[in-house]
Amino acid sequence: MAPLLQLENVSVKYGAIEALREVSFSVEEGSITCLIGANGAGKSTTVNAIAGLVPTASGRILFQGEDITKLPASRRIAMGISIALEGRKIFGDQTVIDNLMLGAYTRSKNLSKLRREAEEMLARFPLIADRGQQLAGTLSGGQQQALAIARALMSRPKLLLLDEPSLGLAPILIQEIYQIIQDLADQGTTILLVEQFAAYAFMVSQNACVLEHGQLTLAGPVAEVRDDPRLARAYLGK
């Protein structure tokens, strides 16, 4: 069976900067794959390109065997790709429920139906379960991250892209967020996880890809990547 997601020689440019150079890897259905590497290595660029938020300069992106390279973000979301962005990017001037309803924008415009679904979604996230009417900007960092993940799930994705869910969170909160990710994995959600803290990512992932200066330098099952000496070098240099 073809993998759920497949990248073939994908390159991305921001003006004069080549952020991603000929990156190829794939994500199997039902698995968690992590994308790790130092800051600025191109991890976020990769998932943003998959979600259709940044254009690819060359290469192909296949989802369920279908070429989605040229499709707009809204089509990709409708097909089943969802992303929780780096830095959480919740809509701070709207309530938690509103944020969740916007996550289902491509599925429905019916507010009462969406509100019901949003409340059901909230119930799955103890961190924010009783915060429905609060302005999202007033949530703590961990709560905002939980909201970002919940919002991404509102579109009922087949593939969930999680970009730096631990960013700026205290260790205790990172544990909680990773519990959520583990639960999602146990329910069979396919996840591509971007993480700069490799050790966290390894706890939940089956496969790992390492990016360095916009290039894929290492990929394979977590057990192999973890012990590869090239991993430490990717972070701390020689």
Binding site: S74, K89, L102, L111, L114
Partner: peptide
């Protein structure tokens, strides 16, 4: 404030990329 389209306008105003990530055109 009471329609999803209106909320989408506020979302685009607040953060265009985050709005696009929800599939908002």
């Amino acid at each position: 404030n009471r329609t999803l389209m209106g909320k989408a306008i506020k979302a685009v105003a607040f953060d265009r990329m985050a709005a696009e990530a929800q599939g908002i055109n």
